[in-house]
Amino acid sequence: MLDVQQAFLRRLDDHEVVTPARSGGGQRRYSRRQVEQVQQVQELVGEGLTLAGVRRVFLLQSRIAELEDELAARRRADRPPGS
């Protein structure tokens, strides 16, 4: 599906970039979101980032999303009633 080597997926797991769930037999199970993340990793690595760099990008993207949610909540709370 992703056209990547199993070793690449192991490295993503080892470097805690994308950590899939495991089946009872120990096989990796990826969610749709994780599959999208693996695709994004491929793009970023293709642009020259290391896996540590990719992990940092993911952490920063997550933090930005949290801050955007917090800002939206504050804006809703600051709105005058009835608007």
Rank of each mutant, 00 (worst) to 15 (best):
L60S: 08
G25I: 03
V35W: 05
Q34H: 05
T19H: 03
R11P: 01
A65E: 15
L60F: 13
R29M: 10
A52F: 09
V57P: 01
E70S: 10
L67G: 04
H15D: 08
D69S: 15
E36R: 15
P20I: 00
S62V: 06
T50Y: 11
Q39C: 15
L49E: 04
R22I: 02
R63D: 04
P20S: 04
V17G: 00
R29W: 10
V18I: 08
V57L: 06
L12V: 00
A65N: 07
V35D: 04
H15M: 11
G26D: 06
A21M: 09
Q34N: 07
R10T: 01
R63M: 11
V35K: 07
V17Q: 02
L49A: 07
Q42S: 09
R32Q: 10
L59F: 14
L51K: 01
R29T: 06
S62T: 09
S62L: 07
V17I: 03
G53E: 07
R75V: 04
V17P: 00
H15K: 14
Q40Y: 13
R63C: 07
R63W: 15
A73F: 12
L71S: 12
V54G: 00
L9G: 00
L59P: 06
L12M: 05
T19G: 01
R28S: 04
R32I: 07
L12A: 00
R11D: 03
G25T: 09
V41Q: 05
L12H: 01
D14M: 08
R75C: 02
G53C: 04
R55C: 03
L9K: 01
R63I: 04
Q37T: 06
V18Y: 02
Q40T: 12
G26M: 11
T19V: 15
D14S: 03
R63L: 13
G53F: 04
S31E: 08
R10I: 04
